[in-house]
Design a protein around this nucleic acid. Structure first.
Lengths: 214, 214
DNA sequence: CACCATTTTTGGCACCCCGCCAAAAGTCGT
DNA sequence: ACGACTTTTGGCGGGGTGCCAAAAATGGTG
């Protein structure tokens, strides 16, 4: 009798954990950290508040878990499915398109994830964000340059900045629609090519770079 | 007798307000929003907690005030003092240097301000951030192009993205020192010149841009 | 100088949320 | 049927927030 509709107990460790995580992910992607309350999560999940703390320790721990999940899922967003990565302009075009698609499908989640928290306040959060960015940068470098391992530091810096460039314009596109999707795609593509193809050699050859060691 | 050391009452409206605002600004630039408490602010200011709520309504209202102050003060960071703005490469060099200087002097405040909150969650916060960015973009456009009023939309988008580019690299510089200050300066300068000088005409002339009106 | 209107400040009430833990409720193997 | 185990509940203590009536200090006036 206790069928699906009224089922009210004993999901089992993993299932309950996953359920709470799903509810929390939705709430954290719609509200800010401090407006989300564990009682609201528990209410939406149909359980007692204590259970949330039983599976994930503190509210911050739960948030860290959610953030980790948010950032690791779309990791291969412009991964090329399989096989050796095709390098070249047409591969970049396809990758950027796939990238925009993924963000378009998970708008709120992506918005909540990229501007997760002020940097420098929480080491764990910082580490998660840094690792996610590093992985994306590696994929970008692989696409536009080649092997990421032998990438010069100047390229890494340019790609890092390009990530900020793309993030700013993508937020504008999602929130105000200001650069249209086509325009966004065009800007992202042209800028990446310009930075890697023209700017990089110029930055490298300039004697004033003087960087790396202070 | 009631000299500076023991003065314990009746500062007057404006003075008290300014004092609370100063204390709150310091705390909000060192901790995250939810770890800052009005009781801590009141304690540091040496007053009762109720007074904080008397001058600024809710804790969020106080935060909004702090944020507004954070973002309007360094507004003219690369303002050219006075007179007609000199346009050209050397002016851009000087402006970027002044800009980096200002951020270097107010590291924590700047870090707290730029990553203030996830976008789309609080209209008032969003508006403050957007207005601040727009003003900075205008100054950048004035520097690298000329009058901001007649700037083409493609340029605005590029400058907008450039802001994200600069922000990402500046955060890295402040937190890990990874691009040295000289390297950061070089990257910011070269990228701005490349985007405005070479990328802009290419983006504009491309027939595929198709943007602006859907 | 005493008095009153005004401003500034306090302290406390009611409510919500978090972290934790002992006890209750349900489940499973024997 | 019964005991060991897992899952879940409910409540306690501590702390933070928003608000408001009352108290304390101030300044002007006759």
């Amino acid at each position: 009798m206790a069928s699906d509709a009224t089922k009210r107990s004993y999901l089992g460790h993993d299932a309950r954990r996953a359920q709470i995580l799903a509810v929390a992910a939705r709430q954290f992607s719609e509200q800010s950290y401090d407006t989300v309350s564990t009682v609201a999560i528990a209410r939406e999940a149909g359980i007692a508040r204590g259970l949330v703390h039983h599976y994930f320790g503190t509210k911050r721990d739960l948030y860290v878990e959610v953030l980790r999940r948010m950032l690791t899922i779309p990791e291969g967003a412009f991964g090329h499915g399989d096989g050796a990565p095709p390098v070249g302009a047409e591969a970049v075009v396809a990758a950027i398109d796939r990238w925009i698609d993924t963000i378009d499908r998970n708008r709120q989640t992506w918005l909540a994830a990229v501007s997760a928290q002020a940097p420098g306040l929480d080491e764990e959060v910082d580490a998660i964000l840094a690792e996610s960015r590093a992985r994306i940068d590696d994929q970008l470098i692989a696409l536009a340059w080649g092997s990421p391992v032998q990438a010069p530091p100047e390229l890494r810096a340019l790609i890092r900045g390009y990530g900020g460039f793309a993030q700013a314009l993508t937020i504008d596109w999602l929130q105000r629609g200001e650069p249209s999707r086509a325009a966004l795609h065009h800007l992202l593509l042209q800028t990446l090519l310009a930075l890697v193809g023209e700017e990089l050699p110029r930055v490298q050859s300039d004697p004033k770079k003087a960087a790396e060691t202070p």
